[in-house]
Design a protein around this nucleic acid. Sequence first.
DNA 1: ATGGTAGATAGC
DNA 2: GAATGCTATCTACCAT
Length: 536
Amino acid sequence: MTAIASEDVLDAEALRRAADLLAGSPVLGVAVVLAAPHPDLPREAASDPRRVRVDLLALASEQHTFVIHCTCFADLRPLAPVLAGPHAPYVVFPDAHFHLTALAGLGLQVPRVGCTRTAATLLAEGVIGRHDELEISALARRHLGAALPGEWLSGQVLPAWSRLEVVAAAAAAAPALLRVLTPELRARGLSRAYELECKLLPAVVAMEAAGIGVDGPHFLAIADGWRAELQVTEAEGRRAQLEKLISTYAGWPRDFLGDDGRMRTHLHPLATDSGRFACSQPNLQQVPSEHTAPGLRSCFRAEPGNVLVVADYAQIELRVAAHLAPCAAMREVFHAGRDPHRATAATLARKPEAEVTSHERKLAKAVNFGFLFGMGARRFQEYAEGNYGLALDLAAAERAREAFFSTFPGIAAWHRKVSALQPRSAREDLTVRTALGRRKRFLAGKFSFNAALNIPVQGTAAEGFKKAMIALHPALAELGGRGILCVHDEYLAEVPEEHGEAARALVQRIMQEAMAEVVTSVPILVDSRVARHWAE
DNA sequence: ATGGTAGATAGC
DNA sequence: GAATGCTATCTACCAT
């Protein structure tokens, strides 16, 4: 493993040295980090050299082929003359992600060397979780030269590729890469999860490209309302909340609203340990709720002539947990169409489910969500207070915990089983898996009981959801519609007004069926509605 | 000034 | 024996 000096300015000479290092050597990757403005670089880069990090990644050293990552340019054309040296071909990926510590994790003692996600290794990593992404990235890297379509290696710097085009190209390359990698993925039990991610990419590309319609003036008016309220508010708690809203959200229309009145985000299907999506710039998965910022979600709306379909899974984590644990009692609740919160409340209050009051049910809801993933009584007190406005003493919290576990003994057994892994975890690595085999590895001494409970459940739910997204992509297109956002267990589509009801039924059915393929022992329910705005 | 991290808080 | 988890983004703070 070799690295070029990290503070080099990217110029023809630096590229030449990189090529020499790569040629016929066991070098896997070379990073060039620009630390000083370069006269040939665009002004936006020169003004912020920190952001100009260009990575070179050897794909197949014998072919002198490498991939260049660049994080900061919306338009890559100004870079073309810099990159068009004698050592082409290059492929340019704007807006790649960096793992500056990744090679260090391999024992490479070179500061500031980056190991990047190429558009294709993007497909591979994450399937197994970030802790061991390098193993699978190296696999993809080894096969990448053979798997990429020929035009990628044409010797041309691809001009001004948008991030979307890059991901789209990765999606196009996915089948070939999948074929090559399948035997090794299968040996690791990862082929189903990997195949899912490959199939998902086109739907993600379309969703990012679509964006979501936003009423900019209304959004800004609401933000002005926050500022006005901050002026006259004394209460420290409310002030802090308003400051958070202003600093995080007020600039969204300016920063992210396109000329066409649509806001586009970056979705990252492979960026989390669990398999859920990450989302950034802006993070549309954390738009404040109606409770926190009334009216804000109403700014997210359908175009004239269209409607939104908004659908979300009902109690998905409880259902997945009932399936995975397994917990017969909880499965029975769902099979009978009963309410799991009412069931817990009945145990807690020692009365029939039919006589449970709304306050008792509210407490039980906190109990079910809180204790499912290993929360303790102490923490539950804060949780119930903070999220549900329920004040209870430690003894009451303990009673609630016992009521939960006696209502769902299968969940208690599941916790005991995972807890039993603890002694081994001090000296050996442990792995937990989702339904499709995606894995999360805990290195020796780094085991987390709670994460070992949570990640397979979260991840399995994410897999069912991703299956639904794959199926919905072509199905909605037949109605002239499209998916526009996904928020963990919630899906937003935009369809022509005349197909609103048909699309609602379609989305609900496909989401239910897709999740049922993964979660086979518990009925799956999706709530859905047709609306002009995101908010209810 | 730049860079890294901790804690709080937005979402699920 | 006890233990929610997964994120992104902002502010504050400390080290260089």
